[in-house]
Amino acid sequence: MSAKVEDVADAMFEMVKEYHGKKNLKALDLTKAMIKKFGDDECDKKLCKAAIRSLMDTGRTTYSYVGGSYIVLPPDK
């Protein structure tokens, strides 16, 4: 794996921003999209998990519950 956690987290954040108000994204939606974007030799599920944790711990995204759990922008953003 050569993609960095921060790069994947940034790409995930952009995707969440892009879909904000249009479609709720689950962790798996982001993971699949990142593996496709970076390639499976550069990015895997473990890396994506670390990227999601980074997004949550820095407060750039948060979880919402609407029947299922989704990753969304915090209400103040």
């Binding site: 949550m56 919402s64 519950y65």
Partner: peptide, 17 residues
């Protein structure tokens, strides 16, 4: 009613709005 964006920083579970 329940759900929405309610929780503690870093966690996606543990709090039911």
């Amino acid at each position: 009613k329940h759900g929405g964006i309610v929780g503690v920083m870093g966690y996606g579970g543990g709090v039911i709005g």
